[in-house]
Design a protein around this nucleic acid. Structure first.
Length: 251
DNA sequence: AAATCGATGCTCT
DNA sequence: GAGCATCGATTTT
């Protein structure tokens, strides 16, 4: 039943694709955008709630859309893996302290970006780790492929926090500190995607030895059996999965 | 499917 | 100067 809905969505999106590039009247496009009340929740609630929602970026006159498949919590406070550990606050991580729903984009390893969304706690944010490409897939291919010679599989386009930033053309320059509740180029929306999926709760990726005590804390969430997940955890998949308890009906 | 490893330059100490 | 919420290519199961 879920897959049927997915197929319908895919078919609809395929048909719409040609017109997407020509749409000019942006404000009318985000009638289902999520308002402040949806971001004004704790980090772990937001991380689970965002699964299945759609990230939208309007850039270079193209509408890019991807469904959120995988998220992680960065809590601040005593979370040593967080940029805001122990209240650390610098110009670079200022967005983590801004209004819930503010985009936090930072540069990593000198050449990549990661995209986060601020939650209600001071200094906390949700990292988006994977998307299912929905709209503007050709353009995503362009952004990912330096030369047109190499074709990237659609399910590989946004399989990783920095891959999705490249595909969605998200940079520190164009998205950091953007209020996603009040911006015409960047927002989250809900559609009629099935809410029957199960959520796997696993450990975060890339936590170094300096945050050893947090390595095993399960602060990563992803949609079970979804091919866009950046790294599966087969052991955690055997455990009781979380039922999506933060549903909203938007349309 | 998983593990290894080098590239690369920003940010903070 | 050290560390890094990663990627891509390559090698090994």
């Amino acid at each position: 039943m879920t897959s049927l809905k997915r197929k319908l969505n895919l078919a609809m999106n395929t048909n719409k694709k040609k017109t997407d590039n020509k749409v000019k009247n942006v404000p009318q496009l985000h009638l289902t955008r999520l308002g402040r009340e949806y971001f004004n929740v704790s980090c772990d609630k937001l991380a689970k709630f965002l699964l299945g929602k759609v990230l939208v970026h309007h850039v270079e006159d193209v509408l890019l859309k991807g469904r959120i498949i995988e998220t992680e919590c960065y809590l601040g406070g005593n979370d040593k893996a967080s940029h805001s550990y122990n209240g650390r606050r610098t110009p670079a991580n200022e967005a983590m302290y801004m209004e819930p729903g503010t985009a936090y984009v930072y540069k990593i390893y000198g050449m990549y970006h990661c995209f986060n969304i601020s939650s209600i706690e001071l200094g906390a944010a949700v990292l988006i780790r994977a998307l299912e490409p929905i709209d503007g897939i050709d353009k995503m291919q362009d952004y990912r492929s330096v030369s047109r010679m190499k074709m990237i599989k659609t399910h590989e386009l946004c399989k990783g926090p920095s891959k999705l930033c490249i595909s969605m053309n998200i940079t520190k320059e164009n998205c950091n500190k953007v209020d996603m509740c009040n911006n015409n180029n960047l927002w989250i929306e809900a559609d009629d995607f099935s809410d029957n999926f199960q959520i796997v709760n696993s450990t975060r990726i890339g936590i170094g030895p300096t945050a050893e005590e947090w390595v095993n804390t399960p602060l990563r969430f992803y949609i079970k059996d979804n091919i866009h997940v950046s790294k599966r955890d087969r052991e955690k998949e055997k455990e009781l999965t979380i039922v999506n308890e933060y549903l909203i009906k938007h349309i």
